[in-house]
Simulated assay, not measured.
Amino acid sequence: MAVAASTDGIALTRRPQTQSLSVVRIWLYVLAALVVVMVAVGGATRLTGSGLSITEWRPVTGVVPPLTEQAWLTEFEKYRQIPQYELVNKGMTLSEFKFIYAWEWGHRQLGRLIGIVFFLPLLWFWVRGAINGRLALTLLGIGTLGGLQGAVGWIMVASGLEPGMTAVAPIKLTLHLMIASIILCSLIWVAAGLKERDATVREVGLQANMPCILLGLILVQIMLGGLVAGSKAGLTYNTWPLMDGAFIPSAQALFVVSPWIENFVDNVALVQFNHRMAAYAIVAVALYHAWNARRRAPQSKLARRATAMAGLSLAQMTLGIITLILAVPLWAGLAHQIFAMVVLAMAAVHARVSA
């Protein structure tokens, strides 16, 4: 009886903490969903050529858009001074400018919203004692990364305002996308870690590092995808499975730029080839992992997650092929980018609960 009372006491003590962590976990998943939306809006901003429409970084006053016709004309005049207008959009009407301005303004406001949704609940949970210690420090680190992301976003935009530039620098676009991906991955990792882990990996002797390897490959692939997007490599070699008539293009095509290291960023042939090869690698690893998990523990949650990862990887590769063959229409390019975040989120959950 004393043991029962003691057990009940422990349960009563732990229940509020468990409930608090459940709320924290929901909050983190909401933040993760907002990051996915942010990436989607960012992708639409890029694909519509809207990213350079706001030529100043105003963290506070930028909240308010132009409200009068004169204010709109002033913003339009600033845009008309940059190379993108002169070299790409010369003759654009004010109405057309308002369209691209809306995408970039919305992208920046969503960033501000995410900051509010992150820091206000974080402060509340901290004051209430729902988070502390290592968890609190981890979340502060993610918040710091979010602040850095805003600065990197402006550095990226500024690269497109330089003389002769009509778009942002590919490497800076890639950095911006990678930080967003790491933030998403970190939020999912922490949220998934607040639940009990799946012991199947250890019980059946599976390689516990396979989910983490898959997660790492997906992050690398997103980086390569950022380079494809930044260099517009998807608008070339629009055939599959061959590139310019060969599965593996010639060395002369892949390393035409000098010095050779710059080919990995500036040569659209190598940039696209690397993205293709990484996709094959991810699918191969995901299929092997699913086969191995189902062979060792066919009825386990691990096997179901591994199978889902294989299916998502195949679907994403198929969507990428369709996007390439169609020469990156807006809907396909956007779907491919959003689905990449879905695959990344699933991989983060799988790796975390399997660790």
Rank of each mutant, 00 (worst) to 15 (best):
G225R: 04
G226E: 11
L227F: 01
L227N: 10
V228C: 04
V228G: 09
V228P: 06
V228L: 03
S231Q: 13
S231M: 12
K232C: 04
A233V: 00
G234T: 01
G234V: 01
L235I: 04
L235C: 01
T236E: 09
Y237Q: 05
Y237L: 01
N238K: 07
N238S: 01
T239M: 10
W240Y: 11
W240H: 09
P241I: 04
M243T: 05
M243Q: 06
D244W: 08
G245L: 01
A246P: 13
F247P: 12
F247V: 15
I248E: 07
I248P: 14
P249N: 01
Q252N: 15
Q252R: 15
Q252Y: 08
A253E: 14
L254K: 07
F255I: 14
V256D: 05
S258I: 13
S258W: 05
P259D: 06
I261W: 15
E262V: 15
E262H: 14
N263F: 02
N263D: 03
F264V: 12
V265M: 13
N267Y: 00
L270H: 03
L270T: 04
L270V: 08
Q272F: 00
Q272H: 07
H275W: 00
H275D: 03
H275Y: 01
R276I: 00
M277K: 14
M277R: 13
M277C: 13
A278G: 10
Y280P: 13
A281W: 11
A281D: 05
I282K: 00
I282G: 02
V283T: 09
A284L: 04
V285W: 13
V285S: 09
L287I: 06
Y288H: 09
A290D: 09
W291K: 04
W291A: 11
A293F: 03
R294H: 10
R294I: 08
R294K: 09
A297Q: 01
A297L: 05
P298V: 05
